[in-house]
Design a protein around this nucleic acid. Sequence first.
DNA 1: ACAAAATCCCCCAAAATGGGTGATTGCTTC
DNA 2: GAAGCAATCACCCATTTTGGGGGATTTTGT
Lengths: 211, 211
Amino acid sequence: MKKRIIIVEDNISIREGFRAVLETIEKYEVVNLYSNVEEALEYLDQDLPNVVLMDIELPGMDGIAGTIRIKKQYPECIVLIITVLEDSEKVFRSLCAGAGGYIVKNSNISEIVQNIDEALAGGAPMSLSIARMVVQSFQQQQNSPLTERETEVLQSIAVGKSYSKIALDLYVSKETIRSHIKNIYRKLEVSSKADAIKVANSNKWVTGRAL
Amino acid sequence: MKKRIIIVEDNISIREGFRAVLETIEKYEVVNLYSNVEEALEYLDQDLPNVVLMDIELPGMDGIAGTIRIKKQYPECIVLIITVLEDSEKVFRSLCAGAGGYIVKNSNISEIVQNIDEALAGGAPMSLSIARMVVQSFQQQQNSPLTERETEVLQSIAVGKSYSKIALDLYVSKETIRSHIKNIYRKLEVSSKADAIKVANSNKWVTGRAL
DNA sequence: ACAAAATCCCCCAAAATGGGTGATTGCTTC
DNA sequence: GAAGCAATCACCCATTTTGGGGGATTTTGT
């Protein structure tokens, strides 16, 4: 069974370039090409693609919003983002939206085919630098101004615990937690939970993730 | 300049196997072998490794704790986890600890070398299935019992915002937020922010990450 | 037309929060 | 040994937040 592919890309030469490349591959079938997400969504029920190659910068709805819509209708469908630049913000938002991987625009045939096959095989094709970004997103920063204990407290704050609950969990008095919080606020120059979480999160002094 | 490598692995045949393989490669130098983390840490200042191949299951201190120690002393040092099984819990904890990638135990020579070179080049070597796990960790679950709006509200709760702040951000009344919260609590069968975050986080109905 | 979702309002009491001003005990570091 | 930091705990105070009731209206999708 041929894998059904659609391409959503506003630049005609890139769009046709990908088509030309993919049509030489026996196991793929390029069922349709679109220059915007809106149109692609309209014909999704007919196209029933296994793979969508999606540009991220598009007129109207962008590729990230498009990915969300497609995954909502067809969770099994694999969306691969076509990109030139590797903007960390966009990478993470794409992944959250359900993108299965990244294809660099000026890849050669074998790289493209390899990426698509990898995605179909259940992998997450992406360049070294994107993989690094993703892995680094898990890693905590070392040079935090906070002490270990303070980090521990802030981490608890970040998962919504109250001072009392944290005190119980760490086997200390509620007042101790309050002291730590005061010190944290002073060091981070904030004066509320939300701000502290925001600062610590953006500097990756806490994991942000409940593990 | 040869890349200095140490191996921390309690199974002698795997340890010697890796050594034998790596010693055939001109650009690597296996400076030492250890059967436990404690010993490896002791000689870290002499060994000054560029790469550590670290088993995850070890007597005494485990590979994850070891990774944390090593990265604390030498953040530039790349720790690659040697593993047979791909336990999602361990994978994420390793990455948070600072691991640079995963090497499967029964890899062949070229795969191992490729993985190490990839790590040294700034990539994040890992198998298809691990890459998929990592990418999926970014993706939200589709079958959430919460509506879009409720998810939005819970997401805000998860980053520490107060009802008032959320109301401002979403341009609605505080009472509306309260209504949503009540519905969220009812659906998730909880009765506090912390519990709601915990449930939503473990089911990945919210991102958990401040993007 | 019906159900679900989203919006808003009031009451109430308990809990949590933020800011202040302290103190004591250890452990490094100079 | 003094100075500094980390971690612990205490009490005061006012304000905000939260959670649980009770409603209500409007919009939206099917």
